[in-house]
Design a protein around this nucleic acid. Structure first.
Lengths: 126, 126
DNA sequence: ATATCTGCAAATTTTTTGCAAAAAG
DNA sequence: CTTTTTGCAAAAAATTTGCAGATAT
């Protein structure tokens, strides 16, 4: 089953991967897979909430595991992506927000996306 | 100048707009504009921090004014988008996060993206 | 045997680019 | 006059679809 092989490339590292990245990694691992299959399975995995979309603002759609929820810091100049862990700081707040929308609008929250954009230290004097 | 006309469609409403949306709205307003111009100007406005990318998890790149920073609640079933204002709840925290990454990594944060995904009340019993 | 998954090729959609004319400074 | 912006057409990139054969249940 190709979806397992797709899931396995996400286990290799923690960076968000585009469809092209997934394809490349699988081919590098000698797994024959078609582009269309990647798209179809990623879409399915997204619906099953195994993966989620990470849009880092550069027009490329990337995905990552929907577990171990980390966030991202993205440099607007060099596009470097740094994974950050805000769970301690945000956990209470996000739970509170979940409660609020559950009771106010009966909206059941399942996941979220949080990314920060700015200029990294290497790019500040360019 | 076409970028002013692009900016003006964002003032009409508060929903995030894709490139196709912008084109459609301008054409509806009898403004002749080419697709390429929309892409070029949006990219420029993004660099000038007048617009920012909004990630609603469906792989479509959308933009909104980078002022009045609201967040979004997105229904994973019907794709309904609800704009929410978390500024009171998150302001302190986001400022604290900005400080943390400024001092720890010398990363200057300029903007962020926060969206919640779940099932809206209309879709829960489908 | 039936239903699901896959590769392949083609179609569609989205975004980018080169270039010459138009507009702005 | 020089620089920037625009439209047009074409190219490139990203995503989706139809279909027939392969896999799995």
């Amino acid at each position: 089953m190709k979806s397992d092989q797709i899931m396995s490339v996400f286990s290799e590292g923690c960076h968000p991967l585009s469809s092209a990245d997934i394809l490349e990694r699988l081919q590098h691992n000698k797994v024959a897979i078609d582009r269309a299959t990647v798209y179809r399975q990623v879409s399915r995995l997204k619906e099953l909430l195994k993966l989620r979309v990470v849009d880092l603002g550069d027009g490329v759609t990337r995905y990552e595991l929907n577990e171990d929820h980390h966030h991202h810091l993205v440099c607007l100049r060099c596009k470097k992506i740094v994974a950050i862990d805000l769970s301690k700081k945000t956990e209470g707040l996000l739970q509170q927000i979940e409660q609020t929308y559950k009771s106010e609008q009966n909206f059941i929250l399942l996941t979220h996306n949080l990314a920060f954009f700015g200029i990294c230290s290497d790019c500040q004097y360019l």
